[in-house]
């Protein structure tokens, strides 16, 4: 397994797309700084009486979907680019244990997604808090920083889960376009659709979507949905396991 891990790490390191994607994630931090500065300027320009209406969402959460999308694409490419180029046959001839191949890719991409996600989240959090200073901009900037650490960690975990879902969907669809669309459907379209449902279903469906699980996992005040933390954790794990399981089944059964 360590050989496969090392090999997959080399594969990821040696293509340009990986570095473009990680570059984009790194750029998200200055983007957070820019957006926060705009927000602070807006706040400072308001008469005190109107400041209470000012909506200031935590900026690392605003850009989290971008980072999730980036890491999802990174993971999709880890498998779909092998199918696109035919490299998969070379790979499977070198390592015929197909589960091990997918496992190796899963460990590497989830690791990068978790690490990159956490670096972004903590970096963006620190930068935006530093820019806001002691302005009581609600709801994102009124809590003590240490109270936000669980939410940041949980959000990092969600980035890793999105990457694993991307990898699994990539193995199932064998197509970069298909898998990226599926991941963005999960990240962006389903939440909107859930919001359109009437009555209790809107909340029920919304609470099980991967985008809303991090908040419920740490019972954050901004959380959408009312799952218990363990339930949210179980669902996060279930998303990853389901996608990887489907990917493994398809990879193991189909001719390469």
């Amino acid at each position: 397994m360590t050989d496969v891990l090392a090999s997959e790490w080399l594969k990821l390191r040696s293509v340009r797309s990986t570095w473009y994607i990680l570059g984009l994630v790194a750029l998200a931090v200055p983007l957070v700084a820019f957006l926060t500065l705009q927000g602070v300027n807006g706040w400072d320009g308001l008469p005190p009486g109107r400041r209470a209406r000012f909506q200031a969402p935590p900026m690392e959460q605003v850009l989290l979907p971008l980072v999730q999308l980036c890491m999802g694409v990174l993971a999709v490419l880890a498998i779909a680019s092998e199918y696109a180029t035919g490299m998969i046959r070379t790979t499977l001839a070198a390592v015929p244990r197909r589960r091990t191949v997918l496992g190796g890719k899963a460990v590497i991409t989830a690791g990068i997604a978790l690490l990159g996600g956490l670096l972004f989240l903590f970096g963006a959090f620190a930068v935006s808090r530093a820019i806001v200073g002691d302005r009581p901009m609600s709801p994102g900037y009124t809590t003590p920083p240490e109270a936000e650490v669980p939410m940041l960690l949980a959000s990092g975990l969600s980035v890793a889960v999105v990457a694993l879902v991307g990898l699994g969907l990539g193995a199932v669809t064998r197509s970069a376009a298909g898998a990226i669309v599926a991941v963005s459907g999960l990240l962006f379209v389903l939440p909107v659709l859930a919001g359109l449902l009437p009555g209790p279903w809107s909340g029920r469906v919304g609470s099980v979507l991967p985008t809303n699980l991090a908040g419920q996992l740490v019972d954050h005040p901004s959380a959408v949905g009312d799952l218990p933390p363990l339930g949210a954790l179980g669902l996060l794990v279930a998303y990853a396991v389901a996608a990887l399981g489907a990917g493994t089944a398809v990879l193991a059964r189909r001719d390469a």
Binding site: D3, S7, L10, S14, T85, G86, A94, V95
Partner: peptide, 23 residues
């Protein structure tokens, strides 16, 4: 099997290194 089954973005050395490391 198929000489074209190579990721075009990878250098020759990196391509072989990836395969070599797995074995």
């Amino acid at each position: 099997l198929d000489a074209n089954a190579v990721h075009g973005g990878r250098s020759a050395f990196d391509h072989l290194r990836c395969l070599a490391r797995s074995n």
